[in-house]
Design a protein around this nucleic acid. Sequence first.
DNA 1: TCATAAACTGAATGACCATTCATTTTATAT
DNA 2: ATATAAAATGAATGGTCATTCAGTTTATGA
Lengths: 199, 199
Amino acid sequence: MKTLIKEPLTRNAKNTFNMIIESAIDLFYKNGYHGTTVNNITQDAGIAAGTFYLYFPSKLSLYKHILIMFSHNIRKTIAANVSEKTSRYEKEREGIKSFIMLAKENPQMYNIIWESLYIDRALFKDYYESFANRYIRGLDQSVSNKEIREIDTEVVSYILMGITNFIGLKVVLNLGKNNDDIDHIVDVVMDLIKHGLFT
Amino acid sequence: MKTLIKEPLTRNAKNTFNMIIESAIDLFYKNGYHGTTVNNITQDAGIAAGTFYLYFPSKLSLYKHILIMFSHNIRKTIAANVSEKTSRYEKEREGIKSFIMLAKENPQMYNIIWESLYIDRALFKDYYESFANRYIRGLDQSVSNKEIREIDTEVVSYILMGITNFIGLKVVLNLGKNNDDIDHIVDVVMDLIKHGLFT
DNA sequence: TCATAAACTGAATGACCATTCATTTTATAT
DNA sequence: ATATAAAATGAATGGTCATTCAGTTTATGA
């Protein structure tokens, strides 16, 4: 793969580089990848069309760069918050809550990551498989600790990612009602995970 | 909204109409909506480009028509299978399994529905909100029956949709391992929903 | 101050693609 | 057999858009 970006060298260039990224995040979110032209991005960033290609070899490479940024960001944020908790229950609660808060604060992130399924399927698969693998490792450890019951942790990791993602979707797109009280939503999730659904 | 389609009248025309839809489903799945041209579709269907516009006023209207077809199909299939079961537990199991089997057999369905988020956000919101509303109604009834604990059924409906969708995603995209034994996967889901995750 | 490299410009290019329409072919009903 | 409506054709149109490039401006360091 060709290099994704050409690093800006000077202070001014770094600034231009960042403005391109910020405009792109905003426009990809609002109008989607295909609904956003390179000229839209450069106009929004207040630069000439050609300047774009000083830093990114193509529109796709910019998209990939943004995806990788988000991916790092999510992992770092969640890992930092989760590591402060000790019990598996608290770790799980914190992981779910961190993700939903992140999604709520950066709705762009959410949309852009999912869209990768329609831009570069391999990228999407990679993203979720590596996310799942980290999850599985944590769950396996908790099974050893006897904090979690003996259960297929691979399937469980997709179950938990599914819950978190759809709750995030609900909050970000404001599906249904009551999307402001994140703590209540997380409580419901934890209640179900702890006690099950049935009487 | 302009009408989505112009109904074909004769036997031959119905055939042409169906070939357009089949080719489109296949190509939208393989290359995405934006990666598929109307000429791709007509070539695959073995007809002239102009013929397309006898039945669909635009590429988007074809996409919407397909989405509505799938939506009906999913609801009808799941509703039929679920109605054969009596207990909430069995209904839930059947609903999850039916969806995953459907997704496995029609991986196109899956991809095309999610892509609506990037083609027409209102369509996507509509799809999931109305799906959730049906789910909520069923859950509320089971709460009345005392088959399900007192719990926020709206949040629960998104939790369950999230689980089903991500498990479906895993199976369809073959994420991770062990994606052939659907019964085992459904067992894990039901185990978690019944007994919770923790010791 | 001057030379050099880095940044930047924006009009032009060429490929792509949804949609149209004048014309032809096919099926049907009397 | 003939008239009529329906179905089908496919080249042409017009607009969009990623990308290029020849030329200009700005910053830096000796």
